[in-house]
Nucleic acid binder design. Structure first.
Lengths: 234, 234
DNA sequence: TATTGCAGGATTGTTGAACAATCGGCAAGG
DNA sequence: CCTTGCCGATTGTTCAACAATCCTGCAATA
């Protein structure tokens, strides 16, 4: 087996190439990324129309490729398309909040219970997100607190060890950002939950996955009610 | 209120219109549906290349709109696109099986535990899927048994009451069909699990959601091992 | 023989322009 | 005031093209 080690390198390189190929650029994806970021950042507010011609010109890209990008974001529920009426930034309502939380209430505790079989590194990611939140709070950076909170919930789902689930969670968290932008985006919304995150992380590290899952369930239920309260005012 | 009944008709019609508008036609979606079905049905086997020009001509549609349709299916992981190399029907490997089952192991038991708060109609859907499977088994229709099994698992996720989760489960089940086509598609694969479905349904109807979830967890783990065994032969 | 270099053809990524279908608004008319 | 019909604007879709990239085969070379 003179080529054994060499073949290993070969296949590694090939895998890398394929990964870059399937993940990476193609202007449509890049444009989708730009728009995604503009929405996540709050620069494109809910309800704003996105006329294809002007937007394509602004992005320096053809209308067709812009169309492909818009298609991606529509699939991600960040934008909504109505036939012959154009695409607009999604304006979530109370039902959307209920639906997203119904998904999270199934997904996150389910993933947390699977944490029993997760490698230690994934549990460490949980702890890292908790500490990131603590640091952000002490620094008084409200935006970073929100970010850390999202990282925590992403880490919870990552315990399940499924790329597909991680992608789904990314979509749900993107919608959560829309919710926050739709309501007044109260800067202190996330802070009360930092303690709960820490408690859940403690339980997880102690191997008490079931307790952690139940804790998370009540946590999410509370957050949903709070959000729905905020939406009732709209 | 002379127009009361009329306004009812109006709003009904309007709701219908909006539903069709956001869900239905636009040739790209229709084409995506056709291709999706061809793959699900097994007429387009794993690994077959889909050249844009010929395929567009065959479908009687422009290359651009075909491109949009392909984009959808790529997002659904039914097809895989490599830059400048074209799209092919996804050929799942053992890692894909592991990933999909990691997702299902978090999703399905998690949704089942949420069944506690589900309306009775959703539980009835569970029972309906079980009976559909029994009938198909007695009729000796192996394909229908597989279909009923998918309906059961879809009904489990539907307990959570989230459209977004239902859509995600549709994707996972579509990938499962790819798995079955990739291996020899043993016609009797699903039959042993009908009893487990019935047991889970019994527990659910008895309100023993936690027991049902645990039962489903071992169930899914077994099925995963069996599938992985089939894939090891490839 | 096995590998390298190179041309040629084929396919994809992207663009630009066009046309029919449809939507939104505005004026005419009851 | 409400309806009707028309006009401009935007979308859905197609067509034709071009550059970039990939694959194939063949010749040249060691």
């Amino acid at each position: 087996m003179s080529t054994g080690a060499f073949d290993d390198v070969l296949s590694t390189l090939d895998a890398e190439r394929r990964a870059r190929r399937t993940v990476m650029s193609t202007t449509a994806d890049r444009v989708a990324g730009q728009l995604r970021e503009q929405v996540a950042e709050g620069h494109l507010r809910s309800g704003t129309k996105l006329p294809e011609e002007r937007l394509a010109a602004a992005l320096g890209v053809s209308r067709n490729t812009l169309r492909e990008a818009l298609g991606q974001l529509v699939a991600e529920r960040i934008l909504v398309r109505e036939a012959h009426r154009g695409v607009v930034v999604s304006t979530p309502d109370a039902d959307d909040v209920r639906d997203v939380y119904a998904a999270r209430l199934a997904l996150e505790p389910g993933a947390l219970r699977q944490g029993e079989h997760a490698p230690a590194a994934r549990v460490a990611a949980l702890r890292a997100a908790v500490e990131e939140g603590q640091a952000a709070l002490e620094a008084g950076d409200h935006e970073a607190v929100g970010g850390a909170n999202q990282h925590f919930h992403h880490a919870v789902v990552a315990l399940a060890g499924s790329d597909r689930l991680d992608a789904q969670m990314d979509l749900l968290l993107a919608e959560m950002r829309l919710f926050f932008h739709a309501m007044g985006d109260p800067r202190t919304f996330h802070e009360p939950y930092l303690a709960a995150n820490a408690a859940i992380c403690d339980l997880a590290e102690a191997g008490r996955w079931s307790d952690a899952a139940e804790h998370l369930t009540t946590y999410l239920t509370d957050a949903r009610e709070q959000l729905l309260g905020g939406f009732a005012l709209t």
